[in-house]
């Protein structure tokens, strides 16, 4: 994958003054249009009723495969597990060489080197979580050290978590400064900023966090860690998609979106792609700008691909366990 430029740390000139002080930032974030939860969820659900068939489905399945950040984030992860995941990332369906590669493999920093070795030359990116993932409860120095370790191990992309405690306490500038510091530490690596939307609780908060993350220099804004009760949903992803759409309209800067956690079926993934298509549009229908943080999703996509190719329903024995 050709390296694409990363976002600048801090806001574009047109929005420079909104991060000038805690008060200015608060006023800006609280001045964003509110989100009516019922209307938002109804819109997300309505888009979920799109019927994606035949050629459209084939396109969507391949696109979804190519957008996966194939993820393992377990305490029990081992080099062997990561290597097998990387093999799958390079060749998701050994029976069908037309299957696209996934976008990235996402691991903890201590396994980033393993992943980098296994993926060398493949074009599949190494993504590493960092900044005291998943809780983000550590001193900034620790978070930065975590980030640097991941980069040193060969990570192409950093998936950081925000300090939800600071955000919920209203210390927006503190959250902003932390993201900005990680942004600077990440250098040329693309930075994904995880909000843990399930902990932010309200859609208004999710919209504010989205803008906060983008102002600070996120390349992607990402819903969740996969470690809490509620992860990516069509509705919270829709808020993120609206935010990146509006941010580009306001600043010219394009930011990617990554829903993560809980997306397990091809049907779900296609619904998310419909959201992308009808909210942000064509420019985001590319794995440089949209990702799925997932693991089991890949096998379901592969089975659906096989069904489209052969006309029969596939089964779990015809895809690989990772």
């Amino acid at each position: 994958m050709p390296r694409i430029p990363t976002a600048a740390a801090g806001p574009p000139a047109s929005l420079a003054d909104v991060t000038a002080s805690d008060g200015a930032l608060r006023r800006f974030l609280h001045g964003l249009p509110g989100v009516d939860p019922v209307g938002l969820e109804a819109r997300a659900a309505a888009l979920g009723t799109r019927s994606i068939k035949t050629t459209a489905k084939a396109y969507a399945l391949d696109l979804a495969v190519s957008m996966i950040d194939l993820t393992t984030l377990e305490g029990a992860d081992t080099p062997g597990k990561v290597r097998s995941l990387c093999a799958k990332a390079r060749t998701p369906d050994p029976t069908d060489r037309t299957t696209p590669q996934v976008a990235a493999v996402c691991v903890y920093p201590d396994l980033a080197a393993t992943a980098a070795g296994a993926l060398a030359g493949s074009g599949v990116q190494v993504a590493s979580v960092a900044t005291a993932f998943p809780s983000g409860r550590a001193a900034l120095e620790v978070k930065l050290a975590d980030t640097r370790a991941a980069l040193a191990a060969g990570a192409d992309e950093i998936d950081m978590v925000i300090d939800r405690g600071a955000f919920l306490a209203g210390r927006y500038l503190e959250v902003y400064e932390q993201i900005r510091a990680v942004r600077e530490a990440a250098g040329t690596a693309r930075l994904k900023v995880i909000f843990e939307t399930g902990e932010l609780s309200t859609y208004d908060n999710i919209r504010r966090a989205s803008w906060l993350g983008m102002l600070a220099g996120a390349d992607f804004i990402k819903t969740s860690t996969g470690k809490v009760g509620v992860n990516a949903t069509p509705a919270n992803t829709l808020v993120l998609l609206e935010a990146v759409r509006d941010y580009r309209a306001a600043t010219g800067v394009q930011v990617g979106v990554k829903p993560a956690g809980g997306i397990r079926t091809a049907k779900d993934a296609v619904k998310f792609l419909v959201l992308v298509n009808e909210t942000a549009g064509d420019d985001w229908l590319d794995n440089r700008w949209f990702r799925f943080g997932a693991s089991s999703l890949l096998n379901d996509l592969l089975m659906q691909r096989q069904k489209l190719r052969t006309g029969r329903y596939s089964g779990p024995d015809y895809v690989t366990v990772d």
Partner: peptide, 10 residues
């Protein structure tokens, strides 16, 4: 042309 054209789903 759109990238993601929905095929007819009658």
């Amino acid at each position: 042309t759109k990238l993601f054209e929905y095929a007819p789903a009658p």
